[in-house]
Computed example of a mutant assay.
Amino acid sequence: MADNQNAAIGHNSVAGDQLKSFVERIERLQEEKQTIADDIKDVFGEAKGMGFDRKVLTEMLRLRKMDEVKRQEWEHLRDTYGHALGIFG
């Protein structure tokens, strides 16, 4: 069946053109994604150079994405667990 689909795409220039277009768009987006990932890495490097801790920054980014209720629930659980383990006194 896959051979029939491949043959159909090969003989149908419209489907072949669409496929090529999808692949090229995905490739461009992957390049952009890598460029953005490199930029983020650079910003983390700048922050580290200024004395900021990457792990803490990452945690702050994660917390900022949470809605207020979820963040409060997480903080309550963290504090509860921390106290139970003697981490917070």
Rank of each mutant, 00 (worst) to 15 (best):
I9S: 05
A47W: 12
G86E: 06
A8T: 08
S21M: 08
E68T: 13
F22C: 03
R64N: 12
D38Q: 11
H76T: 13
K41D: 15
K55A: 13
Q34V: 10
A8R: 13
L61G: 09
V43P: 05
G49N: 14
G49L: 05
L61T: 04
A2L: 15
T58M: 15
Q72P: 02
A84F: 02
E31H: 13
L77W: 01
V56H: 14
E68N: 07
F88V: 12
N12P: 05
K65A: 10
T35E: 14
N4F: 15
L85F: 06
A47I: 10
E24Y: 03
Q30G: 04
H83G: 05
A37R: 12
K20D: 11
A8G: 01
F52L: 14
D39N: 15
D42S: 11
I26N: 03
V69Y: 05
G86S: 01
F44Q: 07
E24R: 08
N6F: 08
M66R: 01
H76P: 00
L63C: 06
M66A: 04
E68S: 04
D38R: 09
E68A: 09
L19R: 10
E73M: 09
E32R: 11
E32P: 00
R54A: 11
T80H: 12
V14M: 09
R54D: 12
D39A: 14
K65G: 09
G16Q: 13
G45V: 04
D17C: 03
D39P: 05
D3L: 13
M50D: 15
S13M: 11
I26E: 03
Q34D: 12
T58A: 14
K20T: 11
M1L: 13
G10F: 00
G82E: 01
L61R: 08
L19Q: 07
Q34L: 13
E59T: 12
N4E: 15
K55L: 07
G82H: 02
H76C: 03
G82K: 01
L77E: 11
G86Q: 02
L29Q: 09
K33V: 08
K55C: 00
R71D: 01
L19V: 06
Y81D: 03
R64F: 03
L85S: 00
G10V: 00
I36Q: 06
Q5P: 07
A2W: 03
D53V: 05
D67K: 10
E73P: 02
K41Q: 13
D42M: 13
V56R: 14
V69W: 01
D67N: 10
M1E: 06
G16Y: 10
I87T: 02
A2M: 01
M66V: 02
Q18E: 14
V56G: 03
E46T: 15
K48W: 06
F88S: 07
G16N: 14
A7P: 00
I36C: 06
G89M: 07
V14A: 10
N12G: 03
I36T: 12
R71N: 04
V43R: 13
T80A: 07
I9K: 04
I87S: 01
N12S: 00
H83I: 01
H76W: 09
H83F: 08
